[in-house]
Computed example of a mutant assay.
Amino acid sequence: MIKVMLVDDHTVLRDGLNTIISQEQDMEVIGEATNGRELLRNLSTIKPDVIVMDINMPEQSGIELTSIIKKKYTKIKVLILTMFKHDEYFLSAIKEGADGYLLKDSPSELVVDAIRTIAKGESVIHPSMTKKLLSFHQKDRKPEENQLTDREREVLLCLVEGLTNKEIAKKLYISETTVKIHVSKIFKKLEVKSRSQAIIYAVQNKLVPLP
């Protein structure tokens, strides 16, 4: 059972998400919070698998809270669910460790699927935000990038394409365990902590061919 916590200062949105999630047999809402202080207080007693959180909230933003959570509660996954399409919010959230970034106009089934995907250790980025990656400027490269093997670059391209570990394994004719090993090595070489960060880094630095 996937344990979910909802963090948003809008009661109507939390109630709506609670209703949607409660209809799923493999997940449940174990807590809610309206601001950062309430969230952090609740995390001292309950440990959700996934936190679904807005960016714009009283006291502390969702980006600030993501940074705190990822440093103190490393196993908790964070899904940002917001109305903000701005590049700076998107990039900041991912760089602070958010495992997913969806817009509030996303269909309910996409949000539910995103929770499942993130709970498995994978990432989700709203389609419109993925397109924005193509316009980002190239950054200074690190020496580690040149150490990626041909197979690791193939796996990295699959990550950029949004494929799951299972889909990557099928496409490259390797086992899921092997995929996980490659992903782990890619993270280490690029000095990133999540699939989303790896995707952004790869696109920014043109590490893989893009359409």
Rank of each mutant, 00 (worst) to 15 (best):
G162P: 08
E88W: 10
E24L: 04
N165F: 04
L79G: 00
L190M: 13
K142G: 13
S135I: 14
L6S: 00
G162Q: 07
H86L: 11
K206Q: 12
I55E: 06
G121A: 11
S196E: 11
N42H: 06
L207P: 02
L163I: 10
M129I: 07
I46T: 12
V112G: 05
Y101T: 02
I118C: 03
L172I: 14
E28V: 07
M57P: 05
V111P: 02
S196M: 13
V111F: 02
G100Y: 00
F84W: 05
I181L: 09
S106H: 04
L81V: 02
I20T: 08
T82C: 11
I21M: 05
G31A: 09
S61L: 10
I80F: 03
H10C: 07
N35G: 07
K188V: 14
K95F: 07
E191M: 13
M53T: 15
M1F: 08
T178P: 01
S44D: 07
V4K: 00
D105H: 06
S194D: 07
K142P: 05
Q147M: 14
L40F: 05
A98K: 00
G97H: 00
R151L: 13
L39C: 04
D15R: 05
H10G: 05
S22W: 04
P58K: 08
V111S: 03
Y89A: 01
F90S: 01
L79M: 12
G16L: 10
D26P: 06
A33V: 03
V4F: 05
P48M: 08
N56Y: 10
